[in-house]
Nucleic acid binder design. Structure first.
Length: 279
DNA sequence: CCCCAGTCCTGCGGGC
DNA sequence: TGCCCGCAGGACTGGG
């Protein structure tokens, strides 16, 4: 499930496309539900043709291609979407191919098994509305304790649920929320309004540290094997998980607690009852 | 403001 | 052995 580290890994993996020009846009035949594309397919094709890729960006869990005319192609992989410059896992779930022309020319592909992903081409004003500070909080790689405290300090929400809110901080999903709170030694059920300044600082610090380390490991490929980098290779961070998907195991930090799985906001949460505290 | 359940969707693994 | 159901969860929506 691509969260910030996986999307950042995809972005870095396609660095070679910068400077190339879109010479072809194709939507491969797909018996399954097509990936959602805005505007519609013919219009997207028309607006993409002959555009030069000026750069790539990432905002939270979204990857962005910037063009010479300031248009932005915003890619939200959601659960199973991949951005690739090599052979996709299969052709059945291939949704879009951009033929690129220029030095080191290649094909840029979007593959999405479940088809929950979204691709949107936006002009500048639309982009600023859709990805602006109203919709998305600060990027998780740059989050500060102060910012978390000012946004959540009076909230009665449980801290783990609040960290998944992209308007608070952009880029954290279910997996990394669990790992960040483990490293911060904070109980995921703790109420935001009961956390101290020091605890917010710890959360911010470990958010950056966990995500940076996960980027170095090129993200997490879970047992379903879906997530791959731009070259269709697995990530390695799943081997570093301390709590996620480790229910029943003895905690590697306190060596006493057993990792528990609970449900918060209809999502699985993993934590160590031995060393993650509410206050 | 926040919560909850439902929606989209496919593949897989547990249970019978 | 085979089949069916439930689960996986990112973003969003409508009702409370």
């Amino acid at each position: 499930m691509p969260e910030l580290p996986e999307v950042e890994t995809m972005r870095r993996g396609v660095a070679g496309i910068i400077g190339q020009t879109i010479a072809g846009v194709t939507y491969p035949p797909c018996a399954l539900r097509p990936m959602s594309i805005r505007p519609n397919r013919p219009a997207l094709k028309r607006r993409l043709m002959d555009r030069k890729i000026a750069g790539t960006q990432r905002r939270g869990k979204r990857m962005i291609l910037r063009f010479d005319n300031k248009d932005a192609l915003v890619i939200e992989p959601r659960m199973t979407g991949l951005v690739l410059v090599s052979e996709p896992p299969n052709h059945e779930h291939l949704r879009l191919i951009l033929d690129l022309e220029g030095p080191g020319e290649c094909q840029l592909m979007f593959w999405d098994r479940r088809g929950l992903g979204v691709i949107s081409l936006m002009a500048e004003t639309e982009f600023e509305q859709a990805l602006g500070p109203e919709k998305l909080g600060p990027d998780a790689l740059e989050i500060a304790g102060k910012s978390l405290k000012s946004r959540l300090g009076k909230s009665r929400r449980e801290v783990k649920v609040a960290l998944l809110d992209q308007a608070v901080v952009a880029g954290i999903g279910n997996l990394y929320a669990a790992e960040i709170l483990f490293e911060s030694a904070i109980d995921p059920r703790a109420r935001c309004d009961r956390l101290t300044k020091n605890q917010w600082e710890r959360i911010a610090e470990h958010t950056r540290a966990v995500l940076e380390k996960a980027i170095r490991y090129e993200g997490s490929t879970l047992s379903d094997g879906t997530y791959r980098n731009a070259l269709n290779q697995s990530g390695q961070y799943q081997n570093e998980h301390r709590v996620y998907d480790r229910a029943g195991e003895i905690c590697g930090r306190c060596r006493k607690g057993r990792i528990r799985r609970i449900v918060q906001a209809q999502r699985a949460t993993f934590y160590c009852p031995g060393c993650q505290r509410k206050s």
